[in-house]
Write a protein that binds this DNA or RNA. Structure first.
Length: 576
DNA sequence: GCCGTTTTCGGCCCGACTGTTTTCAGTCG
């Protein structure tokens, strides 16, 4: 994944420059960081901006000037950036790791390095224990202790939590906060509100009368969902940790007429806010978490609602999920922000499992749950025989399953579709023959093996099969666990469009596959259609759809882009 | 290093909290 690689390279450039030339190159460092942020959120792979003939980038990427552009091209052409290797040799490698420690930034790293000769985390730990760090000017016992703590928690802090792991917990916290009598409004802000696939820390925002702020903070602190040390506590904010995942959580309390500005501010993304505030500045305005102010006389022009904040800059409302610092502000200026898909648009489930394969609940239990959720249909897509570990179905048990579904359809008020999640075998053929495949209402085809090889040909071939409706979890990535297998995504999108094959947005917390920036590209450049599925293995799992909706919204999808927003009749008519 | 409906030069988002200070620097988001 070249975007992630280039992101890291730009970050490292920024970090090394900051460590070497304190102060003088402040804005150079910032330029590298800005570009790094941009790269992380690009809707397309960097290689797709590259024109091999002309040896240049075909589109202007914001924050990319001559120097950074040249580095991007060098990385694409040669797989490395020579200047970075040179720069890396000018400082001990361990200094960059030290920057990742909580409460340690460039100034401290430089001080530790210059004054104590500390070059890596191990030496730092020893120096703290020996009491040398606390003796430095500007540092003391408490600073040393905090750094030591940071080293010990390094592993945990450096890994982001998948949103789905804490999503329910966050809803519970929200609910509890609403029950607090001093709280007027409360909302989860931050990357959780943007439905980012992984969360670094959680931001909760509440409003109440100024004299009640402390009581709100105290109420929050005694919630059962929290655990661990209190990192910081002031009049307007407190920082602690979630029980279980250990994810950091911040509560901020503001006055009611500041809610919109604060919500906007703490929702981010950072890249979005930087752009927004740049725009404000040009217009003679200043935005902070308390409101929008005229620079000339400091008078307040907005703050109570997010809509107001955007409106003062001539912008229509921008949904949190697309506040990524791409082109959403430009699109909003032109009043062209699309109506993004919502959970209530979903009319049915197209990928889940029952006790026939590796699910925990029967077809009837799954169907009843779906019915309760207001769905019109549910496809039960159990595994095929090759996936022995998941109890894949041979033809005999398929007949049995078909019969059971027919019976249930007579008595239930929801249509159960006879489906399968058929394995795409190593050569791209499918685990059932065409005759059997033609019997299913819904065929999801997925890769469950050979992750280390390039799987482009394999999936292209599966899409060419006229019986395959949907490609399940198209890239196979598992968040924090397994990289996506190698794929030529351009070819996949093109073939999906050509063959009218649907690409899945899988809502499993550690999958969220296809991921959002790919979704946007597949839609905008190829006209691909999607299906938002849960891949549920029990009835509770059917409620994960909101995570998939989040990804879809981050990918700028509308209702029309998603096949399972259609009613049963048009669904069956429109799939191939 | 990047950028331009004030500018091709001279700017570059903004505030809370902590610890070590005694008015502020460093870090974080």
């Amino acid at each position: 994944m070249i975007n992630q690689e280039f992101h890291q390279i730009l970050e490292t450039f920024g970090n090394i420059l900051e460590l070497r030339n304190q102060g003088s190159d402040k804005f150079k460092v910032r330029a590298y960081r800005q570009a790094a942020l941009t790269v992380q959120n690009l809707p397309k792979d960097l290689t797709e901006y590259y024109d091999e003939e002309k040896k240049e980038l075909t589109e202007k990427i914001p924050g990319f000037g001559p120097a950074i552009q040249a580095k991007a091209i060098e990385l694409i052409e040669t797989g490395e950036v020579e200047e970075l290797d040179k720069l890396k040799k000018t400082i001990p490698a361990g200094l960059l790791d030290m920057l990742e420690i909580k409460n340690v930034g460039p100034k401290k790293v430089k001080k530790l390095w210059k004054e104590l000769g500390i070059e890596n985390m191990e030496q730092l730990e020893k120096a703290i224990i020996d009491g040398k760090v606390a003796e430095l000017d500007g540092l003391g016992e408490k600073s040393a202790e905090k750094i030591l703590e940071g080293i010990k928690n390094f592993e945990q802090y450096s890994k982001r939590t998948p949103l789905g792991v804490i999503y329910t917990q966050l809803q519970e916290i929200l609910k509890s906060m609403k029950e607090c009598k001093y709280v007027e409004q409360v909302e989860i802000a931050g990357s959780s509100r943007r439905m980012k696939e992984t969360i670094g820390d959680v931001d909760v925002l509440a409003t109440g009368k100024e004299e009640d702020h402390e009581k709100i903070i105290d109420y929050f602190m005694q919630l059962d969902y929290l655990d661990g040390p209190v990192e910081a506590k002031g009049e307007t904010k407190v920082t602690t940790y979630l029980k279980g995942s250990g994810t950091q959580i911040d509560l901020r309390v503001v006055k009611p007429d500041e809610f919109g500005a604060a919500l906007q501010y703490f929702t981010g993304s950072q890249a979005h806010n930087v752009k927004l505030r740049g725009l404000a500045k040009k217009m003679g305005l200043k935005i902070n978490e308390y409101g929008v102010f005229k620079t000339s006389d400091d008078s307040k022009v907005a703050g109570a609602t997010e809509e107001d904040v955007y409106a003062t800059m001539g912008l229509t409302y921008i949904p949190p999920e697309i506040r990524q610092g791409n082109n959403e502000i430009d699109v909003s200026q032109k009043k062209k922000i699309p109506d993004l898909i919502e959970l209530k648009d979903i009319k049915g489930e197209l990928h889940c499992h029952s006790t026939y394969s590796d699910g925990k609940h029967s077809i009837e239990e799954m169907a009843k749950q779906a019915q309760e959720m207001g769905y019109e249909y549910i496809a039960i897509t159990d595994h095929s025989p090759t996936l022995k570990i998941a109890n894949g179905l041979e033809s005999e048990r398929l007949l049995e399953k078909k019969k059971e579904i027919d019976e249930l359809n007579k008595k239930l008020d929801i249509r159960i579709l006879f489906g399968t999640e058929v394995d795409i075998l190593a050569d791209g053929s499918l685990d059932y023959d065409d005759k059997i495949l033609s019997e299913f209402d819904i065929v999801v085809a997925s890769v469950h093996s050979r992750f280390e090889k390039d799987n482009t040909e394999r999936i292209l071939k599966a899409m060419q099969n006229p019986h395959v409706h949907i490609i399940g979890h198209p890239t196979g990535r598992l968040i924090n666990k397994r990289e996506a297998y190698s794929l030529d995504l351009k070819q996949i999108y093109q073939e999906a469009a050509n063959t009218n094959t649907i690409l899945e947005i899988n809502s499993q917390p550690i999958r969220l596959d296809l991921k959002s920036n790919y979704v946007r590209e597949a839609k905008e450049n190829y006209g691909v259609k999607f299906s938002i599925n849960t891949d549920a293995h029990n009835k509770e799992g059917l409620m994960l759809t909101n995570l998939g909706i989040g990804q879809a919204r981050r990918g700028w999808l509308t209702k029309d882009d998603v096949i399972n927003t259609q009613n049963l009749k048009s669904l069956l008519k429109n799939i191939k």
